[in-house]
Simulated assay, not measured.
Amino acid sequence: MKDRYIGQSRGFGFITYANPLVVDKVIEENYVINGKQVEIKRTIPKVSVQSRDFKTKKIFVGGVPTTIAKDNFRKFSKYGKVVDHQIIHDLATNHSQGFGFIIFNSEQVVDDMLVTRVI
């Protein structure tokens, strides 16, 4: 993706695969582009989000203070069993980027959180 005004890279991009099952394999690998390790994430198509057909066990948590440890994400276990949690850090400096992800054991937990507007 490029900045529309100055034409420079915004530091991220998207790839669409013909077979969505390939994404799981791609995410498991480490990649280096132009000498920098890059982070690979799954995206949710806008059409799926709008139609509410998309199911996921993973939530995004933004606005996280940089002083918060990832173990604080365990507090989300009051909504359901937390399988994994992480705060994203800058690869070069290891400083928190102020957001993270929580993966629950069930898609139903995330659905329930959305219905009750917890997230």
Rank of each mutant, 00 (worst) to 15 (best):
N105G: 07
T16S: 03
V118D: 10
N19F: 00
S77A: 15
G80E: 10
V49H: 01
F76M: 14
S51Y: 11
Y5H: 12
E29M: 10
F99C: 06
V109K: 03
A18D: 13
D111G: 02
V61H: 11
I102L: 08
F60V: 11
I59G: 03
D53S: 14
F104N: 04
G63K: 09
D71M: 06
A18R: 15
S106G: 08
N72M: 13
K25I: 08
V26C: 08
F104S: 09
K41W: 00
I88P: 03
V47W: 03
I119Y: 02
K25N: 10
F14N: 03
D3P: 03
K36I: 11
G100R: 05
S48F: 12
V83L: 15
F104Q: 04
F73I: 09
G100V: 06
R52L: 13
R117E: 13
K57E: 12
K2T: 06
V22Y: 12
E29W: 02
D3C: 05
G63Q: 07
D90N: 14
R4F: 01
R10C: 07
G62V: 00
F76R: 07
I15T: 01
V82T: 10
I27C: 05
V83G: 01
F12P: 02
A92E: 15
A18Q: 13
F54Y: 15
I27A: 07
N30I: 03
K58C: 10
L21E: 14
T116C: 06
G35A: 11
I33T: 13
I88H: 05
S51R: 15
D53N: 14
M113V: 09
I88L: 12
E28S: 09
Y31M: 15
F104G: 06
E107A: 13
G7R: 08
I33C: 14
R52T: 13
S77D: 13
G80Y: 05
G7N: 13
G63P: 04
M113G: 11
K2G: 03
V49S: 10
L91M: 05
S48W: 11
I44S: 02
G100I: 09
V47R: 13
E29T: 08
V64G: 04
P45A: 09
R42Q: 11
I15K: 00
A69H: 10
E29L: 12
N30D: 08
I44E: 02
H85V: 01
K57I: 04
L91N: 13
I15D: 03
K46Y: 09
D24F: 01
T67N: 12
R4A: 06
E39F: 01
D84V: 01
L114H: 03
A69I: 02
D3W: 00
V109A: 12
D84I: 00
I6L: 13
G13A: 09
N19K: 05
V23C: 12
E28G: 03
I40G: 04
Y31N: 03
P20T: 08
N72S: 10
Q86D: 06
V61P: 08
I59N: 04
S48I: 07
H89A: 10
K25V: 08
K78E: 15
S77V: 07
G35M: 09
R42G: 07
I40S: 03
K70E: 15
V26E: 12
A18C: 05
V61T: 12
K55Q: 15
M1R: 06
Y17M: 14
H89Q: 14
N19Y: 05
E39V: 02
S96R: 00
N72L: 12
V26Q: 14
N30F: 08
T66K: 13
L91W: 00
